[in-house]
Design a protein around this nucleic acid. Sequence first.
DNA 1: TATGAATGAGCCTTCATTCAT
DNA 2: TATGAATGAAGGCTCATTCAT
Lengths: 224, 224, 224, 224
Amino acid sequence: MSDREDQLVGEFPLIPKQERAQLKRDLLLKSGQELFITKGYEHTTAKEIAAHAGVATGTFYRYFSDKRQLLMSLLENQIEMLMPPEPKWSDSDPESMLASLLEAHDKRIKEMGMQRLLPELLAKDTEFAVVLAAAKRKIFTRILLGLTKAYEKGLTWKDLDLNTVTWSLMTLAEHAPDKMNQCGNVTDYREVAKVICRIIFPPEEIKKLQLNETENETEADEVE
Amino acid sequence: MSDREDQLVGEFPLIPKQERAQLKRDLLLKSGQELFITKGYEHTTAKEIAAHAGVATGTFYRYFSDKRQLLMSLLENQIEMLMPPEPKWSDSDPESMLASLLEAHDKRIKEMGMQRLLPELLAKDTEFAVVLAAAKRKIFTRILLGLTKAYEKGLTWKDLDLNTVTWSLMTLAEHAPDKMNQCGNVTDYREVAKVICRIIFPPEEIKKLQLNETENETEADEVE
Amino acid sequence: MSDREDQLVGEFPLIPKQERAQLKRDLLLKSGQELFITKGYEHTTAKEIAAHAGVATGTFYRYFSDKRQLLMSLLENQIEMLMPPEPKWSDSDPESMLASLLEAHDKRIKEMGMQRLLPELLAKDTEFAVVLAAAKRKIFTRILLGLTKAYEKGLTWKDLDLNTVTWSLMTLAEHAPDKMNQCGNVTDYREVAKVICRIIFPPEEIKKLQLNETENETEADEVE
Amino acid sequence: MSDREDQLVGEFPLIPKQERAQLKRDLLLKSGQELFITKGYEHTTAKEIAAHAGVATGTFYRYFSDKRQLLMSLLENQIEMLMPPEPKWSDSDPESMLASLLEAHDKRIKEMGMQRLLPELLAKDTEFAVVLAAAKRKIFTRILLGLTKAYEKGLTWKDLDLNTVTWSLMTLAEHAPDKMNQCGNVTDYREVAKVICRIIFPPEEIKKLQLNETENETEADEVE
DNA sequence: TATGAATGAGCCTTCATTCAT
DNA sequence: TATGAATGAAGGCTCATTCAT
């Protein structure tokens, strides 16, 4: 009994300083994110962010040197989420796999809402644009590698340039979320996935892959 | 006497008033465009635009109610250029046709340089975003119509959703210019066109279309 | 009659723009001076200066890039007045001459009131300190030259260092105004002049000089 | 046992509380002085002073109500050092005596470095100016008294106003340090002392005084 | 007592917009 | 109509001082 009381007593007012500071920092980050999304980066002032977080203006400057720095902290955590996902072709129905990847990506993006900021930032902040481009190029390379292997196995179209295919794949994946909304259609990830697969594989190869998978699954079932 | 008077009257404001005003307006528009592109919308001041156009600050406000209005006038003329082009499938090799459309689009975009502003504006100006979305939807509808006709003629893939195909086509076309640069490759419009065509047509249909064209050309030649 | 009317009509609203601007600039300068003197340089804000001059904050920045720049403009006109005066020994009673120099200097200083600012500025603004030191050294040199000539004529003390004498003379002249007030005495320039002269000349030489002058005056009287 | 306890008790807060507090206060004073000298009063922040003293910001305000109060405490200890020294004419060569007084004064001033702050403070802080003026007047009175005695003994010039002489003496003494540097000369206290003495005493009186001293010394030697 | 995070008034500066000329 | 000086709201940031722990 006394133990529990101690814990109760001890826990409440003794949130360690560091933790409280971290809390406040997070509050500011969150406020920044919300306001940036709502009003755009340029139109959000440090004062507003502070007010929205329920702290004084000066407090903002204790945790961040700058509006820009807050933004960068925000992006640091999120830059990877903004990247189109890297598919694994190997052992599953490519269409289903892509569809779920796309959906997950879409979900992530919607959760942070930050993607609406990206364009503004890319236009304004060269440094940030460079960082982002590097990240994108890395993913590009990895996807291209995967496609090359599929190509060597004879799974892909023979007459399409793999670089271009990779880029198309990334572009479609990246814009899947916001674009379908813009066109007034409910996002149907399966259909987007089918289009992307069509860019990569001839229909018959997809069928084969799907068949393989079914067999695998059957085998798995049998084993079970 | 009357002659002289006429001359006096006629010579001094030789250029008709309206025309002179139009000239000034155009000068301001041009200055605005250049500065917006160079320094971004927010970081360009009305004073600067006026100075760059060689007029006084106040004059700016005779021709435009607002910095924003100048921007809108600028975009009005250019919004269509920003849209991905609408292809005509009928009577030509689709791949070549698309390739040249893409190249032309790219060229237009680069010429105006305005596309770097779009993101900033979209984030800031909801109204503008709405206008842009409407324009895009219009194009979407027209492209979809064209694809539907091709579908009815049995030219397209049977198993792909036309809405999604349309969207993919637009997305790839829209991002062709800046994205390929980002990935460090020289833009090869032909390859992008091939990818887009693959999304729409089965390879054998494309061959047929290309053959038809050749025949048409041959026929045309023969007629001549 | 009509002429006069024309003038009246023409004159009032046609204060040339430049002149009006100059007027405003002067108003700001004056406000700056008053406030600097009253509250000290650091404690005067640009906003206050503007308000005191009856203009908006922004207007201040049309005429001066900075609070410091206003100050410098202020000093530019006045730096020479701050310097201790350079005496001419030649042909007059040195004590009277010095006394009137001191009085004139004091008057000038009091008129501008700026001298109370100098120390603050010297401490804060290295650049300004350099300028001032240069001006002072120039005067020093000229005074020293004059004393050297007097020395060569055997008019001065033989056993005092002329550099030191020059410096003493400058120091006493410079501080005559504000120091006597500080000590609670009415400034008696004649007495200060006598002290300064005593530093330079033995009493008997001063008598001779005064006698010479009297003779000159007498001669002049006779001529008249 | 009691020994150990004593030790334990004694060792930890070994330094009595008051003394520790005094220590901290002194540390803050010293930090304040250093930073004020280095960066100027206005440009030194309370936080900096605290940090430099190795204590928290809040601690600063336990020992001083104010940044200004710290400054005043600082000056309280030093105000006398800033005053020109009060000479003793009686029993020694006045020139040597003054020379060494001047040198000592100069040294003191340089040691504290505070004199660079005075101007800023005088301009800003009326109260402080009053305090300083009072201190100065006190010294003035004492010096004047000394001179009056000398006057009664017939040692001084008969034709100079003692008030003015006193003021001159103080002024020259006060500015001896920084002014000679400004004029580009190495400070020669002996020469300044000679000038000051010349303001007070006719040369022959000085000789007598110096002679007396020699006699006194001789006598003293003889006694020994 | 000591701490240092928090406060918020206040400074400097910019710029969209107005308006007297 | 054209001009450009004037306006003043608003943003970014600092720092003396307070106060909960």
